[in-house]
Write a protein that binds this DNA or RNA. Structure first.
Lengths: 337, 337
DNA sequence: ATTGCGTATGTTACCGCTAACATCCGCCGA
DNA sequence: TCGGCGGATGTTAGCGGTAACATACGCAAT
């Protein structure tokens, strides 16, 4: 094993080191490294070579303190493991890419207290903006967002009052629309299968909208089943089995997310049930996974990527008080007749 | 709409504001907020109330600069969208939770240049450690890691020479083992289906190990098929169809990841093929999704959660030069006879 | 030669916090 | 009475950069 060209320095390098190595002032080095102000091509070259040779990495902490500019955007989301937020992240990253801003992710696991902690932690780094999932926060979190003095975008949901800006869809409406489509297709014995998470407000609102539309048509859910934890695909199977055993005449299954819906679909296919004739299925999100299933599951896309893009645009423009409502489209697939 | 109790301050608050509001020096406030040094309970109380009332959020930038202590751990991974890294993240977060350290994620999209950029960016915040996927980096990235002067843990893979510490499995060995199991089960016409990503070194190493074991048994792959982009589940179906059309006598399909494997499995089931009698299947990762499939797909778990934990432990202990090899276990499922 | 101006570079004073040391005070034992 | 000591608090000097202003210089116009 050969040693690196320079023995690794004990002390981490500062502007002064580069300045000494290149024979100009620290200020000039700073100018070169940030491409700001006039520097002659000759010095610029000299400085760059010195910096590169030494392996200098600027200290953004010092830079940020001095300039009170931080190129970080706090992104606070409930989870990374369910396919939906990674896609939002992709939209955010893609849009931020060209702006010099950098997303920093914090995960709350659907816990309001954890959200508060994560938010506090991130605000203490004085980011240029905050993108946060949902409109429901603890009072303290709400206050912090209020007083942060930076652009705040609450994403995913617009059924409520945003602190500042919001980008999302109306989940209540999404639930309502799905119910209407199901009723119009002639289904009457409708069951709901979803997560047990008290803090998944968006799933809750979809269910509320759904039931609202049912009751407007004089219907109520014939059954409901909740789960938490474990493999969503497997849970989808199990819950579907449970509902069908308990309520044999059920003719429609509305799932709160695609993953359990996919599990349910696989189960029903395995049982050889007549889909969509005897029983219909629908879910929510429009994840790409569905494309690979044997039958196309009805769903409603949540505009995840676009939500990310629009939110990032607002932050990049330092905008405030924008509310952007996106409209999800119903994808009927092959599981509604 | 009622106004918040205090009109939102124009200027962001500093220690001085809290100090004035509570009638003690900034230093004492600092002590209280960090619970460091002796402060009388009475003052402590007074300070905490003042801070809370004002809504003070400490400025970690200044704090970090003054103390040269940063509680951030840089985590650099190729992607968030494939189920595997979120689980590593979960392990990292869980382990770091109790240490006061905070993971910060950077995503490279399997691009070495992007990795270099992300690393540079993150190092410039002077984190307490770096966890980075893989052992292959650009020369510049390698040098930065070398000189960072903080604990570095390269994760997922141990087939190579780490800069500092490493936690992972041997993918070459994993491929070899799978091949041996397949051969032992009597399959002979074996095909490989995988990603086209030139920078997915781990998938490459698995394939190398796999082919090595085949050739040791006097066999070679009868077919191979690559993809990139799109829904992995769907691609799995399509690729499987392609291979079977092109090489009708194929009797085993080895997939580079579970998602395409799952797609392939669904396709084969749909075709009514005799699994595992006429044709066998196996994949890699051991993702939870597989539990919900109609048939249990053979796979090999990649110890993702544990990798995260062990890596985080090394960082938390400021360890150096540890190499931890985990051993994945073969899960035969129902798709190898 | 003098003025004036634009370019290239240097100087100074912080940014908001914390390490390290200094100070103050009350109380104990000698 | 006094020194000593430990707990509670204050003071000072940076951390490593950057904004803002100051300076030096060359050259065209007067």
């Amino acid at each position: 094993m050969s040693l690196p060209p320079k023995a690794p320095p004990k002390r981490t390098l500062t502007l002064r080191d580069v300045s000494e190595a290149s024979g100009v002032s620290e200020m000039t080095v700073s100018r070169v490294l940030r491409s700001r102000g006039d520097v002659s091509p000759a010095t610029r070259e000299r400085v760059l070579i010195a910096a590169r040779t030494l392996g200098y990495v600027p200290n953004k902490i010092a830079g940020a303190l001095a300039s009170s500019r931080v190129n970080l955007v706090a992104v606070i989301i409930p989870s990374l493991s369910n396919m939906v937020f990674p896609e939002v992240m992709a939209g955010i990253s893609a849009t931020l890419e060209s702006t010099g801003l950098q997303p920093v992710v914090g995960v709350t696991n659907y816990s309001p207290d954890r959200e508060e902690t994560v938010l506090y932690e991130m605000l203490s780094w004085r980011p240029s903006g905050v993108i946060i999932a949902g409109l429901e926060h603890t009072d303290a979190a709400q206050a912090m967002l209020q007083n942060a003095g930076i652009p705040i975008v609450e994403i995913m949901d617009i059924d409520g009052t945003p602190v500042d800006s919001a980008v999302g869809i109306s989940h209540r409406r999404a639930g309502r629309q799905m119910a209407e489509a199901i009723i119009a297709a002639g289904y009457r014995k409708i069951a709901f299968l979803g997560t047990m998470m008290p803090h998944d407000h968006r799933a809750r609102k979809r269910l509320e909208g759904f039931e609202e539309a049912l009751s407007k048509a004089g219907l109520t859910l014939v059954d409901r089943e909740f789960y938490n934890g474990g493999s969503a695909l497997l849970k989808g199977r199990e819950m579907t089995a449970a509902v069908q055993n308990r309520t044999p005449d059920v003719d429609f299954l509305y799932y709160s997310n695609d993953m359990i819906g996919a599990g349910g679909l696989l189960y029903c296919l395995h049982q050889g049930l007549d889909i969509p004739g005897k029983i219909g299925l629908a879910a929510f999100n429009g994840v790409e996974l569905l494309d690979g299933l044997p039958r196309q599951l009805a769903t409603m896309d949540a505009c995840r990527y676009e939500i990310g893009c629009r939110a990032a645009e607002i932050i990049a423009a330092a905008g405030s008080n924008n509310v952007v409502e996106l409209t999800p489209t119903l994808q009927r697939g092959d599981t509604i007749r």
